[in-house]
């Protein structure tokens, strides 16, 4: 057996007639097509509601638990470790450090991208180390990107912001 043959998938010979896409289009096989309609409007609540409202103002809001001394971003109104109410709101800088990133040459629905999209987790300055959020990096030289690089948010102009995580367009390397 040569190498080519050994790599070929093993397709068993099945008894019957192969179905083709056109058999479905022409109705020669029976099936039901159904496209679900799912609509939700989620209440953001106190914590994420304020986080988004602050985004609109160009600020990063966080909460602080004075028991475990953690500063949480995105904020919550409760500390999940101490299981108690948080003590105060704080505003953080819009700078941070790349915790982890990926250079993605496909979109979420697997379309090829010429310019890659770079999802990254940014640990925000002033938050407990390791705390931050997932966002996008914009860079001309993705090959030079490194974990631990410092980045800063690039905001949409104030009139375009609507209280969304996308009010930050992306983060850019600042050193």
């Amino acid at each position: 057996m040569n190498e080519q043959a050994s790599l070929a998938p093993v397709v068993p010979q099945l008894i019957g007639t192969n179905l083709r896409t056109r058999d479905f289009r022409t109705g020669s096989v029976f099936f039901e097509y159904y496209k679900p309609k799912l609509e939700y409007a989620w209440d953001t609540g106190k914590a994420i509601g304020k986080f988004l409202a602050e985004m609109k103002k160009g600020r990063v809001a966080a909460t602080h638990c004075s028991k475990c001394k953690r500063t949480l971003v995105p904020p919550r109104i409760f500390c999940e470790k101490c299981f108690r109410d948080i003590d105060k709101w704080v505003t953080l800088k819009d700078t941070g450090v790349i915790e982890t990133f990926s250079v993605s040459f496909v979109t979420w629905d697997v379309k090829r991208l010429e310019k890659p999209q770079i999802p990254a987790v940014i640990a925000i300055d002033g938050a407990t180390p390791g705390y931050g959020f997932l966002h996008l990096i914009n860079t001309k030289d993705w090959k030079a990107l490194r974990v631990g690089q410092r980045v800063k948010a690039v905001w949409k102009p104030a009139h375009q912001r609507k209280g969304s995580i996308t009010d930050i367009k992306y983060f850019e390397v600042i050193e």
């Binding site: 609540g45 106190k46 994420i48 509601g49």
Partner: peptide, 8 residues
Amino acid sequence: SPELSYKE
């Protein structure tokens, strides 16, 4: 219950 998220 618009002022609270399900988590809250």
